[in-house]
Design a protein around this nucleic acid. Structure first.
Lengths: 336, 336
DNA sequence: ATGAAAGCGCTAACAT
DNA sequence: ATGTTAGCGCTTTCAT
């Protein structure tokens, strides 16, 4: 392992000058900078991150805390964040919670992150008050991505608005019995589900549409869960003419289950989702599109800006959503 | 930031003893070990990874190099690897290549990883000879996951076997015009595509079935790509009665495109995939199942074992695959 | 513009 | 069982 000393010896300069030259600091003659750069290149010198970290106090690493790596949404966000971090020379330390409370506790509550990373990206979940306190005491830039936060910077969409767009679209088409498929309500830290449910209910209320509690079901944000929920809703007493699913994956489950029951989409049932994910266009799913990868990019850019000393604007960012109408929605067949 | 010195002072012992006590090394009285542990806890002491790394030469980090984080397969593998690494106290450094040759070069060719990680997991791609040389000169445990390698340890399935199972199933059902949808052939570093194509061709040859070059198409391992390939195959002159897609995502694209063309599955076309991924059961897709998360776990376990000094067996592991017959395959309608 | 020297916070011999 | 003493490989004053 060639160290900075080797390079210094090679060019007959001190390690201090080599360090300056390599980091592009001023106070090094052009000639020497060139010689140093070349020597480092020639010797295959790469600084030891541990040594740099110890001496400078910066690790050049950013923690990314993700609820489930293998879910489409988070994969996209991670990808976006990674692009930006890599370009800035930061490494990405991945912490996957995988739904385990133990993992969540370990990451947030133990000082684990304190001396390990320069900044933290939290994806898709709203930190508890206690967790926020811990994050704050890290004294490092933190961004919440894909979930709106109050005290911390966050970049997300307006989940309630997204739900409103979807629901309004169905109401405008003439639907009155509109089902809702969302996440389970006890996972309150994940903000999206509750905000989306709220948006759905608000539109019904505002439009003077009777709200049936039996038309709200749980789809767990998975295709299979969406399918199961749809089967329950469609075989129940008050069969809806439309279903709004709080994610595209659940919506696709709904589509599939509907057809399995011998019903047609959008003939017998209209379906709307949220995300505009990979398969949405493919399944002709009407949905509310959100920029997912972009959220990852923004979050990363934000913490980087703070690291570079740009004045911190606490304002969170809310990215635009857009209703994308495809073939899964239409006026209800039987209007009376 | 409380350091080891603070703890040492608190319990009136040397930092060396504190270090030993905290790491569970022998040579510390039970009483002192307890006192140290408690003091550390009380003070909220967490060792500085940089300092540990510098002093011990170990970073407690493992690099995971992944072609595309946002693809289902890799998300699953990462999840499996993360579980194991976390349990062992290692952090996961994620390098996403995102299909960029530049990223690939940076990760493999620059000494980037050398002083940064204790081990490397390479997912889904076969390193070039040059890359292998670089990996070897890291002098650290390396595992290839999800792709068979020759000189390095690897854990994967037998891709050719998987393709054979799928193709044989179709042949046994009576199909003779069997299309193939795979990856593009120029991405040769990704071993799976070529091995799967080879398996498909081999079965046709062995069973004395005429092989039409026009029945092989490119699906790029995406749903959309699979759909496009299917449209080409099904509207061509030699319409196949069955299609074997080298991944479930492509297979689902095939299903969808087939139905869009007004054809039925399996009535007019049988479809088989590989993976048994999330949506396969949901779409009643016949497929060859492979243990994906398990591959991630094995890869991680392997490098950890090497790190702990377990003698390195160079033998690679090949995990079992299994044909899962569902409703997307049946005998061809028109047998003559 | 460059160098000398003092750490950063820990671990690893080597003592005792 | 515990303490002392060197570093690990850098960055960062402070000199010059």
């Amino acid at each position: 392992m060639t160290s900075i000393k080797d390079v210094a010896r090679e060019v007959s300069l001190s390690t201090a000058t080599v360090s300056r030259a390599l980091r592009g600091l001023r106070g090094v003659s052009d000639e020497n900078r060139t010689r140093v750069t070349e020597a480092a290149q020639r010797l295959g010198y790469v600084p030891s991150p541990s040594a740099v970290g110890l001496a400078s106090g910066q690790t050049n690493m950013v923690a990314v805390i993700v609820p489930h790596v293998s879910r489409w949404f988070f994969g996209e966000v991670v990808q976006g964040a990674e692009e930006v971090l890599r370009a800035a020379g930061y490494d990405l330390l991945l912490y996957n919670l995988a739904g385990e409370p133990a993992a969540r506790h370990r990451v947030f509550q133990t000082g684990l992150l304190s001396k390990r990373v320069d900044a933290v990206l939290v994806l898709g979940l709203r930190p508890t008050a206690q967790e926020q306190a811990r994050l704050a005491q890290l004294g490092r830039p933190v961004a919440i991505v894909g979930a709106a936060a109050t005290d911390l910077y966050s970049v997300s969409i307006d989940d309630e608005l997204a739900a409103r767009l979807a629901t309004t679209h169905l109401v405008d088409l003439g639907h009155r019995r509109i089902g809702y498929v969302g996440g389970s309500l006890d996972t309150l830290d994940y903000i999206a589900p509750s905000a989306r449910l709220a948006g759905y209910r608000a539109v019904l209320r505002e439009r003077g549409i009777r709200h049936y509690r039996e038309l709200e079901d749980v789809g767990e944000f998975t295709v299979a869960g969406g399918g199961a929920a749809a089967r329950r809703l469609l075989t129940g007493p008050e069969r809806p003419t439309a279903i709004f699913a709080a994610s595209d994956e659940m919506a696709i489950g709904v589509l599939r289950a509907t057809r399995e029951l011998g019903l047609s989409v959008p003939g017998d049932l209209s379906v709307v989702g949220i995300d505009d994910y990979e398969l949405a266009e493919f399944f002709d799913l009407t949905t509310v599109a959100q920029p997912v990868r972009e959220q990852g990019r923004r979050g990363a850019e934000r913490v980087l800006a703070e690291l570079l000393g740009v004045r911190r604007r606490t304002e969170s960012e809310v990215l635009p959503v857009e209703l994308v109408v495809r073939a899964s929605t239409a006026p209800p067949a039987t209007e009376r």
